[in-house]
Amino acid sequence: MKWDIPLGEEIHPGNLGCQGCGGALAMRLALKALGPDTVAVIPACCWSIIDGAFPVHALKVPVFHTAFETAAVAASGIKAAKDVQGKATTVIAWAGDGGTFDIGIQALSGAAERNEDIIYACYDNEAYMNTGIQRSSSTPSGTWTTTTPDERPESRPKKNIMEIMAAHRIPYAATCTPAYPDDMLRKFRKAKSIKGTRFLHILSVCPPGWKMPSDRAIEVMRLAVQSRVFPLYEVEDGLAYTMSLWPTEPVPPEDYFRVQGRFRPLFEDPARLERIKAFVDQQWEILVRRHRRTHPDEAGIPAGEAAAR
């Protein structure tokens, strides 16, 4: 085994995720880092289904199913109860982008502002996939969904949830994706070791919703990172930015978009595609600048990044 990934599972086989589900893989990997002394709080999202219908459930750790808008506050309450019991159990709120970016953001902001001692993980598949692929505020610009059809694709850019969370000055926020499992496990382990509100933003492929074959699920998440559409980075105390991965070979964002049917409108609107590519570059440059401000003496930045930015 060339991977430093625990062989033990905190998930049973037989989950109800679709073929190639990034959310199912993300949970499996996250729990490998967090271990058995964990409680998961799951609001309405794909994972309400994936875990199985009563009386069956797929996770080996306890799961508390809760209402759409309450993941962060329910997790805070469970953590408080564990504290009263004198237990060090890790409590993780595990929500989709709808339950995080849209419906759950009030509870999340409140918990973050109080610096509740929880991990909040958002597995982000960029739309309400579970109810039939309706757009969310996480849906990127130019995307087809059932509520943003081909003739009127999503017009607004994806909400920058990481900047919102960083603005709360929480101790730890990081992006990750199961296509880079060692990076993802490292971030979950690090999150577990920190006290306070920790936020993990997981790009999580949805083959049916992204309109792509399930066997390319890992590849597409890898392309998201390599094309800089979804950079991997960490933010400590809301201010200290650290890039986790510098893509080694340039991959144009089109390579990431082309694999997915949901981006078909982009290829019929070259002007929009160019605007989106410029946006990707701009977002990347902002992160590189923040990284350099955090690490002024670092020699590890690839020459091209240091010179061009």
């Binding site: 085994m1 060339k2 990934i5 599972e9 049973h12 086989p13 989950n15 499996r28």
Partner: peptide, 14 residues
């Protein structure tokens, strides 16, 4: 060569 990549990426713990 027993790299383990298949194991790591299985979403179904299968």
């Amino acid at each position: 060569n027993q790299c383990g990549t298949c194991f790591v990426f299985c979403p179904d713990a299968a």
